[in-house]
Design a protein around this nucleic acid. Structure first.
Length: 494
RNA sequence: CGGGGUGUAGCGCAGCCCGGUUAGCGCGCUACGUUCGGGACGUAGAGGUCGUGAGUUCGAAUCUCACCACCCCGACCA
């Protein structure tokens, strides 16, 4: 065993690191906290990106691109926003290097100091709203429904591949609207897009709902979030959508003339998901044998491994594969690789594709051709079966569907069985400490929320949309014992 | 920023305490041969500014000082 994977039960976070490594998704670079996303990891990001981009366009959004650098002064405009990001900004102070006369080494040229420092964007609200000021004069200019695919930098203290890196890739939608209602609707629409994407494409069941005031995005009036459960029972915030009210339009003085001829401030939203989704994918579905990917996001759906001894045998297998397998699969839009590389043995290949989470493997040898069959292995269950060569494309197509649905169900069953209603604080602590979501009543105060966090490290992940909050009457807060306002999900989070 | 740790071949490490010829080991890599239905084996080989700088010494991977970088555990975060 050249590539050992730590078992989840032994050390969950080491297991995660091992998966990233053996599946060849990413590695740390020479730059602190920054990762190199390797081709296979990037291919997954491209699948995510392509589908989301399609969904954004279906909801009438367009893409644009804004600068990487933001003048420092822009951050002064929105007080809460600065406060949220100031502590983790990379700052550009100079624009030139020179060779030092004495040491002969490259040094920063002190003569090339910037008049005003530039901040490497931690998020783009400020620079975008500065532009929107010029774009918007009339209600006829609204709405603006723009998305940007970009990288951002947040100088985090502690980083983890995909989950929290100093630089990460994401998309950020920034919309401007004439009315409050329309903006609120937009924020809700986009959290639902995220939810659909998570559940239908990532096979990742999520709870969606409001964030509490304390957990809100810096500068937002309201933040919606989708929260997923990882296999250690911890929560991962997988996507957020914010109703920003008029905070940014006021900060950047973006007004429009309405139909009545009156000047009004514009209403805003922003929403984003990042390469963190790849971390979610890994931690939700993978097992001790390696990565497990939902077929809809797998860069490669099917790999075909030939088994042979002599060149003539390989030739015969190749002929069969080319004639009877590849065309049918490709016709169905299934991505397939025939790995006839003679440098590696079948056993090596089996493991290679298994750790990389390729959903379906076909193994074919001379014996199989004689019997008109092929061995089919599904990655999620590792089940092996022989199927007739004849309608193999249909078989594989159905199998891919089964896997997509199967891993969603598995993840949902896991989440549901680790989500518990708790009626007192002892139960609460037990659920949260054992890894799980606690459904509990909350009195609605930040004070209680913070005390619970201090004692248990659990936070309110979300005030779920699909819980009728009117039914909290007569219920008591799980910690304070005061009258409950909401029924919420508490958990330890990444 | 507080606490701990590590820098030696592409990767993972030993050697350092107690200085001494040519700096080792495993994996990986290259060539050839035998293998090939779950990570094959043999033989031969290539690969090193011992993190950087200064000092002690006849002699430094090893001792001293400074610096740099990274990792782990906390507080903060998508």
């Amino acid at each position: 065993m050249a590539k050992a994977i730590t078992k989840r039960s032994e050390n969950y976070s080491q297991w995660y690191n091992d998966i990233v490594k053996v599946a060849d998704l990413a590695e740390y670079s020479q730059v602190r906290g920054c990762m190199v996303i390797k081709p296979y990891g990037y291919a997954i990001w491209e699948k995510i990106k392509d589908q989301l981009d399609k969904m954004f366009k279906e909801t009438e959004h367009v893409n644009a691109y804004f600068p990487l650098f933001i003048p420092k002064s822009f951050f002064n405009r929105e007080a809460q926003h600065v406060e949220g990001f100031a502590k983790e900004c990379a700052v550009v102070t100079h624009y030139r290097l020179k060779v030092d006369d004495e040491s002969k080494k490259i040094v920063v040229d002190d003569d090339a100091k910037l008049e005003e420092e530039l901040i490497v964007r931690p998020t783009s609200e400020t620079i975008i709203w500065d532009s929107y000021k010029n774009w918007i004069q009339s209600y006829r200019d609204l709405p603006i429904l723009v998305n940007q695919w970009a990288n951002v930098v947040r100088w985090e203290m502690r980083t983890r591949l995909f989950l929290r890196t100093a630089e990460f890739l994401w998309q950020e939608g920034h919309t401007a609207h004439a009315t409050k209602e329309e903006a609120m609707e937009e924020a809700m629409k986009m959290i639902n897009v995220y939810r659909t994407f998570a559940e239908e494409w990532m096979a990742l069941p999520v709870y969606s709902g409001h964030k509490t005031e304390n957990e809100r995005f810096a500068g937002a009036i309201n933040t919606y979030s989708i929260e997923a459960m990882m296999q250690d029972g911890k929560a991962l915030q997988a996507g957020t959508s914010h109703f920003l009210g008029q905070n940014f339009s006021k900060a950047f003085d973006v007004k429009f003339l309405n139909k009545e001829g009156k000047l009004e401030y514009v209403w805003a939203t922003s929403w984003g998901v990042s390469t963190r989704l790849i971390g979610a994918l890994i931690m939700a579905h993978s097992d001790d044998n390696g990565l497990v990917l939902p077929p809809k996001l797998a860069p490669l759906h099917v790999v075909i491994v030939p088994v042979y001894r002599k060149p003539e045998q390989l030739e015969e297998i190749t002929k069969t594969v080319n004639e009877k397998i590849l065309p049918g699969l490709r016709e169905k839009g299934i991505t397939v690789k025939y790995d006839d590389d003679d440098k590696y043995k079948p056993g090596y290949k089996f493991n290679e594709y298994e750790v990389k989470g390729v959903p379906v493997r076909l193994t074919i040898g001379i014996r199989d051709i004689e019997n008109g069959r092929v061995e089919v292995v599904r990655r999620d269950t590792l089940e092996k079966n022989f199927y007739p060569l004849d309608n193999i494309a249909d078989t594989v197509e159905k199998l891919l569907n089964d896997i997509q649905n199967g891993i969603f169900k598995k993840a949902k069953d896991f989440r549901d069985s680790h989500t518990h209603k708790v009626s007192n604080f002892d139960e609460f602590k037990e659920v949260v400490n054992n890894g799980g979501f606690a459904l509990a009543y909350w009195d609605g105060t930040t004070e209680t929320e913070l005390k619970i966090k201090e004692e248990t490290k659990a936070t309110i992940r979300v005030i779920p949309f699909d819980i009728d909050q009117n039914k909290t009457k007569g219920k008591k807060d799980v910690y304070s014992g005061k009258d409950a306002k909401y029924k919420v999900i508490f958990a330890k989070a990444y």
